[in-house]
Amino acid sequence: MAQKPKMEETFGGYVLHNVPFPTELTEEALAALKEMGPILIEQPYEITYLHSYAQDSPFFAGLANGRFLASRDAETGYTYANPRAHDMYTGADTEWVEIQPEGVVHAFTVCHFGSEEFLPECPFVLALIELPGADTLFLARLIDVDPNAANLDWIGMKVKGRFRRLSKFKPTDIYFYPA
Protein backbone atom coordinates (compact mmCIF):
# COMPACT_ATOMS: atom_id res chain seq x y z
CA MET A 1 0.00 0.00 0.00
CA ALA A 2 1.93 3.02 -1.24
CA GLN A 3 1.58 6.16 0.86
CA LYS A 4 1.19 9.38 -1.10
CA PRO A 5 3.85 11.98 -0.26
CA LYS A 6 2.46 14.51 2.18
CA MET A 7 3.74 17.64 3.88
CA GLU A 8 3.06 17.95 7.57
CA GLU A 9 -0.08 19.97 8.34
CA THR A 10 0.43 22.77 10.84
CA PHE A 11 -1.66 25.52 12.37
CA GLY A 12 -0.76 29.18 12.01
CA GLY A 13 -2.49 30.37 8.83
CA TYR A 14 -3.06 33.95 7.69
CA VAL A 15 -5.33 36.16 9.74
CA LEU A 16 -8.54 36.50 7.76
CA HIS A 17 -10.76 39.53 8.21
CA ASN A 18 -13.63 38.70 5.94
CA VAL A 19 -15.20 35.88 3.98
CA PRO A 20 -17.30 35.84 0.80
CA PHE A 21 -20.93 36.63 1.57
CA PRO A 22 -23.92 37.56 -0.60
CA THR A 23 -24.20 41.31 -1.22
CA GLU A 24 -28.00 41.05 -1.29
CA LEU A 25 -29.77 38.73 1.15
CA THR A 26 -32.39 37.54 -1.27
CA GLU A 27 -34.43 34.43 -0.51
CA GLU A 28 -32.17 32.46 -2.84
CA ALA A 29 -29.04 33.86 -1.24
CA LEU A 30 -30.30 33.00 2.27
CA ALA A 31 -31.19 29.48 1.18
CA ALA A 32 -27.77 29.10 -0.42
CA LEU A 33 -26.11 29.85 2.94
CA LYS A 34 -27.00 26.28 3.96
CA GLU A 35 -24.35 25.20 1.47
CA MET A 36 -21.70 27.52 2.86
CA GLY A 37 -18.49 25.87 4.01
CA PRO A 38 -17.57 26.13 7.70
CA ILE A 39 -15.47 28.97 9.12
CA LEU A 40 -12.56 27.57 11.09
CA ILE A 41 -10.73 29.81 13.53
CA GLU A 42 -7.74 29.13 15.76
CA GLN A 43 -8.36 29.36 19.50
CA PRO A 44 -5.13 29.24 21.52
CA TYR A 45 -5.45 27.86 25.02
CA GLU A 46 -2.72 27.98 27.62
CA ILE A 47 -2.77 27.61 31.35
CA THR A 48 -0.27 27.13 34.14
CA TYR A 49 -1.40 24.93 37.00
CA LEU A 50 0.06 25.06 40.49
CA HIS A 51 0.18 21.30 40.89
CA SER A 52 0.83 19.90 44.37
CA TYR A 53 2.50 16.54 44.86
CA ALA A 54 0.86 16.72 48.30
CA GLN A 55 1.34 13.49 50.27
CA ASP A 56 3.64 12.16 47.55
CA SER A 57 6.07 15.07 47.91
CA PRO A 58 8.74 13.16 49.90
CA PHE A 59 9.20 10.88 46.88
CA PHE A 60 10.20 13.84 44.71
CA ALA A 61 12.31 15.33 47.49
CA GLY A 62 14.05 11.95 47.66
CA LEU A 63 14.75 11.91 43.93
CA ALA A 64 16.17 15.44 44.16
CA ASN A 65 18.55 14.15 46.85
CA GLY A 66 19.55 10.97 45.08
CA ARG A 67 17.36 8.63 47.14
CA PHE A 68 14.59 6.35 45.89
CA LEU A 69 11.72 6.17 48.37
CA ALA A 70 8.98 3.56 48.21
CA SER A 71 5.76 3.12 50.20
CA ARG A 72 5.45 0.04 52.40
CA ASP A 73 2.55 -1.41 54.33
CA ALA A 74 3.89 -2.02 57.82
CA GLU A 75 1.80 -5.13 58.42
CA THR A 76 2.16 -7.01 55.14
CA GLY A 77 5.41 -5.54 53.88
CA TYR A 78 3.80 -4.97 50.46
CA THR A 79 5.88 -2.27 48.83
CA TYR A 80 4.87 0.18 46.11
CA ALA A 81 7.58 1.58 43.86
CA ASN A 82 5.30 4.54 43.15
CA PRO A 83 4.38 6.40 46.30
CA ARG A 84 1.01 5.65 47.80
CA ALA A 85 0.03 7.00 51.19
CA HIS A 86 -2.47 4.21 51.81
CA ASP A 87 -2.15 0.53 51.05
CA MET A 88 -4.83 -0.72 48.65
CA TYR A 89 -5.28 -4.03 50.51
CA THR A 90 -5.10 -3.10 54.18
CA GLY A 91 -6.29 0.48 53.80
CA ALA A 92 -3.66 1.48 56.35
CA ASP A 93 -1.16 4.33 56.16
CA THR A 94 2.03 3.25 54.43
CA GLU A 95 5.51 4.11 55.64
CA TRP A 96 8.40 5.46 53.63
CA VAL A 97 11.30 3.09 52.99
CA GLU A 98 14.39 3.52 50.88
CA ILE A 99 14.94 0.94 48.14
CA GLN A 100 17.78 0.55 45.69
CA PRO A 101 16.95 1.68 42.14
CA GLU A 102 18.41 -1.40 40.50
CA GLY A 103 16.44 -4.10 38.80
CA VAL A 104 15.41 -5.58 35.47
CA VAL A 105 13.29 -4.46 32.55
CA HIS A 106 9.81 -5.98 32.83
CA ALA A 107 8.32 -4.46 29.65
CA PHE A 108 9.31 -1.67 27.27
CA THR A 109 8.57 0.18 24.06
CA VAL A 110 10.32 2.58 21.74
CA CYS A 111 8.16 5.63 21.02
CA HIS A 112 8.80 6.82 17.46
CA PHE A 113 5.95 9.28 17.83
CA GLY A 114 4.43 10.77 20.94
CA SER A 115 2.35 13.46 22.48
CA GLU A 116 3.18 16.94 21.27
CA GLU A 117 5.19 17.69 24.41
CA PHE A 118 7.49 14.74 23.83
CA LEU A 119 7.71 14.71 20.01
CA PRO A 120 11.12 16.42 19.97
CA GLU A 121 12.49 13.60 22.13
CA CYS A 122 11.42 10.78 19.77
CA PRO A 123 12.55 8.09 19.50
CA PHE A 124 12.72 7.40 23.23
CA VAL A 125 12.38 4.24 25.27
CA LEU A 126 9.77 3.73 27.99
CA ALA A 127 10.27 0.83 30.36
CA LEU A 128 8.51 -0.70 33.33
CA ILE A 129 11.21 -1.66 35.79
CA GLU A 130 11.06 -4.51 38.30
CA LEU A 131 12.83 -3.47 41.48
CA PRO A 132 13.72 -6.31 43.87
CA GLY A 133 12.72 -4.15 46.85
CA ALA A 134 9.20 -3.48 45.53
CA ASP A 135 6.11 -5.50 44.68
CA THR A 136 5.00 -3.12 41.95
CA LEU A 137 6.73 -1.81 38.84
CA PHE A 138 8.14 1.64 38.08
CA LEU A 139 7.72 3.50 34.80
CA ALA A 140 10.87 5.26 33.62
CA ARG A 141 12.95 6.23 30.62
CA LEU A 142 15.58 3.71 29.57
CA ILE A 143 18.68 5.18 27.91
CA ASP A 144 21.83 3.82 26.33
CA VAL A 145 20.05 1.24 24.19
CA ASP A 146 19.69 1.64 20.42
CA PRO A 147 16.07 2.70 19.79
CA ASN A 148 16.32 1.38 16.25
CA ALA A 149 17.31 -2.07 17.45
CA ALA A 150 14.39 -2.83 19.75
CA ASN A 151 14.51 -6.41 20.88
CA LEU A 152 12.41 -8.56 23.19
CA ASP A 153 15.66 -9.62 24.82
CA TRP A 154 15.69 -6.22 26.48
CA ILE A 155 13.10 -7.70 28.82
CA GLY A 156 14.98 -9.19 31.73
CA MET A 157 17.98 -6.92 31.14
CA LYS A 158 19.62 -5.68 34.34
CA VAL A 159 19.35 -1.92 34.72
CA LYS A 160 20.47 0.71 37.17
CA GLY A 161 18.88 4.02 38.05
CA ARG A 162 20.69 7.32 37.82
CA PHE A 163 19.47 10.54 39.36
CA ARG A 164 19.51 13.83 37.50
CA ARG A 165 21.96 16.24 39.07
CA LEU A 166 19.72 19.16 38.17
CA SER A 167 16.43 18.02 39.56
CA LYS A 168 13.26 18.93 37.68
CA PHE A 169 10.95 17.56 40.40
CA LYS A 170 9.46 15.12 37.95
CA PRO A 171 9.49 11.30 37.96
CA THR A 172 12.13 11.60 35.22
CA ASP A 173 14.54 12.81 37.90
CA ILE A 174 15.49 9.15 37.86
CA TYR A 175 16.16 7.21 34.68
CA PHE A 176 17.64 3.81 33.99
CA TYR A 177 20.49 2.42 31.90
CA PRO A 178 21.82 -1.09 31.28
CA ALA A 179 23.89 -2.23 34.25
Binding site: H51, H106, G114, S115, R141
Partner: peptide, 30 residues
Amino acid sequence: NEFIALASDVSFDYPVGGFYSGYYAMMVTR
Protein backbone atom coordinates in the same frame (compact mmCIF):
# COMPACT_ATOMS: atom_id res chain seq x y z
CA ASN B 1 -2.34 12.36 21.72
CA GLU B 2 -1.30 14.67 24.53
CA PHE B 3 -4.93 15.15 25.59
CA ILE B 4 -5.47 11.40 25.60
CA ALA B 5 -2.25 10.89 27.58
CA LEU B 6 -3.63 13.22 30.25
CA ALA B 7 -5.83 10.22 31.00
CA SER B 8 -2.79 8.74 32.71
CA ASP B 9 -1.39 9.79 36.08
CA VAL B 10 -0.10 13.33 35.53
CA SER B 11 2.30 13.08 38.45
CA PHE B 12 3.95 9.77 37.61
CA ASP B 13 3.11 8.47 34.13
CA TYR B 14 2.43 11.38 31.82
CA PRO B 15 5.70 13.25 32.54
CA VAL B 16 7.82 10.21 31.64
CA GLY B 17 6.61 10.41 28.05
CA GLY B 18 2.84 10.18 28.12
CA PHE B 19 1.61 8.40 25.00
CA TYR B 20 -1.14 5.82 24.98
CA SER B 21 0.23 3.88 22.04
CA GLY B 22 3.43 3.57 24.07
CA TYR B 23 1.56 2.27 27.10
CA TYR B 24 -0.20 -0.43 25.09
CA ALA B 25 3.03 -1.30 23.32
CA MET B 26 4.67 -1.92 26.71
CA MET B 27 1.79 -4.15 27.72
CA VAL B 28 2.13 -6.23 24.60
CA THR B 29 5.91 -6.59 24.77
CA ARG B 30 5.27 -8.34 28.08
